[in-house]
Simulated assay, not measured.
Amino acid sequence: MPMRDDWHTGARIREQRRLAHLTQRQLADQLPYSYSLLNQVECGAREASPALITAVATVLRIDTSLLTEAKTMTHLQRRRLAALMHPIRAAFDLFDLDPDRAAETAPLSELAATADAVCRQVRATRLRAAAEELPGLIVGLTHIVRTRPETEAWRALASAYRTAHDIALKVGYPDLAAVALDRMGWAAERACDPCLAAVRQYKRALARQESEELGHRLVRAGHALLAGETTREALAVAGQLHLGAVAVSARAGNHKAVAGHLEAARDLAAQVGGEAGDVHWLSFGRTNIDLHALGAQVRMRQWDEGLAQARAMRLPPSMLMSRRARYLVDRAVVEMETGHTTASLRHLVEARRLAPEQTRYLPGTRDAVSGLVHTMRRPPDGLTHLAAWIGL
C-alpha cells in the first residue's frame, strides 16, 4: 500500500466519512448531491465546490476547516503550543544583549543540574514540563555567560539550546529548532567542547531533508571535529553521526550508503561497549542502531524487511521512552503497510499510552492513522479517537 500523499479535499471528505462510519451511499443520501458526484470528488476526479464542502460538513457535524486545511493538530492545540513556545523564542533573543547586572539568578551549579534535568525530561517524553522550564533556564545561563563566563556555564547553555531544538522539532516548530541549533553552536564553540559541537552537526544533518549531499557534508564536519579524539564519549558521538548519515541516506533511497553507515556505527558500538546512554543522551549502542535500521526501512518503504526487523526487536527495560515511542510508531506503520491493521492500531494505542506528547506529533503517527482509516472498512472506536486526537 502506498503512503498517502493525496491530501486534496476529496481525500479528507473520504477520511471524515469513514470516521463517521458512513458509506459513500449513506453520505450521498443525506446530501443534495448525487452519489456519482461524491464518488468523483473523493477520488480526486472532480473538485469539491464550497457548497458541497459545507453540505458534507453539516451532515458529518464537523467544521469545514477539517475538509479544507491539511492540519496535523486542532486550532486549540496550535494555540496552546504557541503559548508554550513563545517564552522560549523570547529567551533566545537575549544571547547578544547587554545583561541586566542587577538581576539575580540561580547559582551555576543549580542551573547546570536543571539543564541536565530538562534533557532527561525530553527523553522521558515529558515535553511540556521541559518546555516550561527552558525559558528561565536559558535566561539564567545567558546572564551568567554574559557576566562571568565559565566553561561549565557555556556547556550547560549549549545543552539547554539542544533541548530547545529537540522540543521545537518534536512539536512542529522547525524554524525555532533551526535558531536553537545556531545558538547551540554559539555556546558550544565558547565551551571548547568538540563533542557538543559534533552533536550539533548531527542535529543539523537530520534537519537537512532536501539534500543528501548537504546532510553528508554536515556529518563529515562532525567527524572532523572529533579527529584524534579516542575517548568513549567521542566514539559514541562519532557513531551517532553515522546514524545521522543513515537517516540522510534513507531519505534519498541510497541503500548502499545506508548499509555502509550502519556497518560503521556497529564497529564503533563494539569499541564503546554496551549502551552509551550517559553520553549526551544519545543512547548510542546496538539497540539504537537497530532502531535506526528500522527507521531507514520505513523511509525506504521496505515494508516486509521492516516488519521482520520490528517483530524481531526486543527493547531493553532501560530504553528511553522517546526511543520506545518512536519504535512503536514505526512498527505501527510497517504493520499497517503489510495489512496487519489490528496490530498496527494496537501499537499506536500503546505509543499514545506511554508517550502521548511525543506520539501526537510524530509524522509516522499521522501516516499510520490515516492509512488505517483508508484501509479499515468500519474504523473501530479506538481508531476514531486516535484520529480526533491528532486532529485528522
Rank of each mutant, 00 (worst) to 15 (best):
P2C: 07
W7A: 08
W7K: 14
R14Q: 11
Q16R: 14
L19C: 00
Y35R: 07
S36P: 05
E42T: 00
C43A: 12
L52T: 03
I53R: 12
R61E: 15
R61P: 08
D63S: 15
T64R: 15
H75E: 15
L94I: 14
D100P: 10
L111I: 11
A112F: 06
V118L: 08
V118T: 15
R120D: 15
T125V: 07
P135S: 08
P135R: 05
I138F: 08
L141E: 03
T142A: 01
T147Y: 01
S159I: 04
A168V: 09
L169G: 11
G172D: 08
G172L: 11
Y173C: 07
P194T: 09
A198W: 13
V219R: 09
E229L: 10
V237D: 06
N254A: 15
L262R: 02
L268N: 03
G274W: 11
Q302R: 07
W303C: 02
L315N: 07
P316K: 11
V329Q: 05
G339N: 08
L345M: 02
E357H: 00
R360C: 05
P363N: 04
G364S: 03
S370D: 12
R378Y: 10
T384Y: 07
H385G: 06
L386I: 10
A387M: 03
G391L: 15
L392A: 08
